[in-house]
Amino acid sequence: MITLTPAAVQEIRRLKMAHNQAQGILRLGVQSGGCADFVYELELVATPQPGDRHCTQADIAISIAPDSVPYIEGLQLDYTEDLMGGGFRFKNPQALKSCSCGHSFAIAPDFGSGI
Rank of each mutant, 00 (worst) to 15 (best):
V69P: 02
L75C: 09
S32E: 13
K16R: 14
R13I: 06
E73M: 05
A22W: 12
Q23I: 15
H54A: 10
C35G: 11
E43C: 08
L83C: 14
K16V: 11
P50K: 10
E43M: 13
G85E: 06
A22Y: 13
S63D: 01
T47R: 08
T56W: 12
G51A: 07
Q31V: 00
Y40E: 02
G51L: 06
D67E: 04
K91G: 14
G29T: 01
L42C: 01
D67K: 03
R27Y: 07
E41S: 14
E11T: 12
S32A: 11
F38E: 01
D37Y: 00
Q10S: 15
V45E: 00
R89D: 15
I25K: 03
I62P: 00
Q10M: 13
L77C: 09
R13Q: 15
Q10Y: 14
I25A: 09
A61G: 04
G24W: 12
V30I: 13
A65E: 02
L75V: 06
D52H: 04
H54L: 13
C55R: 04
K16I: 09
M84S: 14
P66Y: 03
V45Y: 04
P50V: 06
T47I: 03
R53Y: 13
I62N: 00
A18W: 14
E43R: 08
F90M: 13
G33N: 10
L28N: 04
E41P: 06
L77A: 09
V69E: 06
D59G: 04
G29N: 05
I12Q: 01
S68V: 03
Y40T: 02
Y79Q: 07
G34A: 11
G87F: 11
I12F: 15
L28K: 05
D52G: 02
I72A: 04
G33M: 09
S68T: 05
G87H: 10
Q10F: 14
Q10R: 09
R27G: 08
D78Q: 07
Q21T: 01
Q76R: 11
G74D: 07
Y79W: 15
P48T: 01
Q76D: 07
G24V: 02
G87E: 07
L77I: 15
D37L: 00
E41T: 09
Y40Q: 05
L75G: 03
E73G: 04
F90Q: 10
V45L: 02
A46G: 13
N20A: 12
Q21L: 08
G33A: 08
G24K: 05
T56A: 06
H19Y: 14
Y40C: 05
M84C: 13
F88A: 08
R53Q: 12
G34Y: 12
K16Y: 15
H19A: 13
E81H: 11
D37R: 00
Y71T: 00
F90A: 12
S63T: 01
P50N: 10
L77F: 14
I25V: 15
A22M: 10
A22D: 07
P50L: 09
D67G: 02
Q49G: 06
